[in-house]
C-alpha cells in the first residue's frame, strides 16, 4: 500500500513554547489513521501545520509522494478538513453557508451535500448563529465531506455530537473508507477510534511515542496475569514482574512474558487459580501517558 501522507520530524515552537517536538508518522492510502493523545499533546498543532495554517520550524511533510504545498489549489481540493472547533459565518443560514462553499468547487458537489444533509438530519433554514454545538459540528462535517475529498482530516469530530449522531458519523466514515478515502482521525478517546482505525499513532508532549497497526498493538501489548497461591511471595521474586494489585493470596502482574514461559515457571508452585487477561485499549492508552 502506498503512503498518502508522510511526516518526518515535524517541529513547531510558539516562541519558546513547544507545540510539537518531533512528529514522524505515515498514513497509507485508503486507511483510517487514529491520531491519539490527551488534550495539549500536539494533535491540533500537527494538523494545523499539515494544512498550512501555521508554519513549521523543521521537518518535512509529503503528500502523494511530493512535498506538501498547501498553496496548490489541486491539493486543497483533494483534502477535507473538520476543525475541532467549527467557526463559520454567523450571519448565514446553513443553506447559504453550504451554497457559498459550493461556489469554490468546479465540480458539482450538490448531490453529496444533499445526501450528507439528509444523513445528519440538518435543518438548512437555521441560521449559523442559532445552531447548537452539535449542529454546528454537523455543518462542519458536511463542509469537510461534500466535495468528496481523497484525504480527510478530522480533528475531534465527535465532540458535541450525541451518541446517535456519533454512530451516524462512524457509518459515514466507514462508507468513505470503502470508497477509498484516506482518513486522519484525531481524538483523545481511544475507544472512539478503536472500532474504525487501521493504524494508531500515539502522541505525547509533541512526540509520537508509538505508531503501529491496531492488530499489532493489541498482540504486542502486555497482559494481566492473576495468580492465587499460598506462595505468592516466592512467585513474585521468581517472575520479577511489575505488580498491579496485591490482595491476600492473590496477585495481579503486568506481564510481558509469553504464556509458555509463564506456565513452565509456575509448574513448581501450588497454584489455586491462574488467569491471563488481554489488557483493554483504555488501560494500554493510560499506560502510555502515565
Amino acid at each position: 500500500m502506498s503512503k498518502l501522507l508522510e511526516i518526518k520530524h515535524l517541529k513547531k515552537y510558539y516562541g519558546k513554547t513547544c507545540g510539537i517536538e518531533d512528529v514522524t508518522l505515515s498514513i497509507n492510502e485508503g486507511e483510517i489513521y487514529g491520531f491519539i493523545g490527551p488534550n495539549g499533546a500536539g494533535k491540533s498543532t500537527t494538523i494545523r501545520t499539515i494544512i498550512g495554517l501555521i508554519k513549521k520550524n523543521d521537518g518535512k511533510i509529503f503528500y502523494n509522494g511530493k512535498e506538501l504545498d498547501m498553496s496548490d489549489i489541486k491539493v486543497k481540493e483533494s483534502i477535507g478538513y473538520l476543525p475541532s472547533e467549527v467557526n463559520l459565518y454567523k450571519e448565514y443560514t446553513v443553506k447559504e453557508m453550504l451554497d457559498y462553499h459550493e461556489t469554490f468547487y468546479k465540480k458539482n458537489i450538490n448531490k453529496r451535500r444533499k445526501e450528507l444533509v439528509k444523513l445528519l438530519k440538518l435543518d438548512e433554514l437555521k441560521r449559523i448563529e442559532d445552531l447548537s454545538l452539535g449542529n454546528l459540528k454537523k455543518v462542519g462535517i458536511v463542509l469537510a465531506l461534500m466535495h468528496e475529498p481523497k484525504f480527510l482530516i478530522l480533528d475531534e469530530p465527535t465532540s458535541g455530537l450525541d451518541p446517535i449522531m456519533q454512530s451516524v458519523l462512524h457509518d459515514i466514515l466507514i462508507e468513505e473508507k470503502n470508497k477509498g478515502t484516506t482518513i486522519l482521525y484525531s481524538s483523545h478517546v481511544l475507544s472512539e477510534v478503536s472500532n474504525l482505525c487501521d493504524t494508531i499513532g500515539f502522541i505525547k508532549n509533541g512526540v509520537i511515542i508509538k505508531e503501529d497497526s491496531l492488530v499489532n498493538i493489541k498482540n504486542n501489548s502486555y497482559t494481566y496475569l492473576t495468580i492465587t497461591s499460598a506462595e505468592v511471595d516466592k512467585i513474585k521474586k521468581d517472575l520479577g514482574l511489575k505488580v498491579k494489585e496485591e490482595n491476600d493470596n492473590t496477585i495481579i502482574f503486568i506481564n510481558n512474558i509469553d504464556a509458555n514461559t509463564i506456565i513452565k515457571k509456575l509448574s513448581k508452585y501450588n497454584i489455586e487459580r491462574l488467569l491471563i487477561e488481554e489488557v483493554s485499549l483504555e488501560d494500554l492508552f493510560s499506560s502510555f501517558y502515565k
Binding site: 494544512i51 498550512g52 495554517l53 498553496s71 489549489i73 486543497k76 481540493e77 483534502i79 478538513y81 476543525p83 472547533e85 467549527v86 467557526n87 463559520l88 459565518y89 454567523k90 462553499h101 469554490f104 468547487y105 463542509l143
Partner: peptide, 15 residues
C-alpha cells in the same frame, strides 16, 4: 477575530 479564517484558508483558493 471571528475565527472563520480556519474555514476560509482551507477553501481551494490561494491566499
Amino acid at each position: 477575530s471571528d475565527k472563520t479564517i480556519e474555514y476560509l484558508s482551507f477553501l481551494p483558493i490561494k491566499r
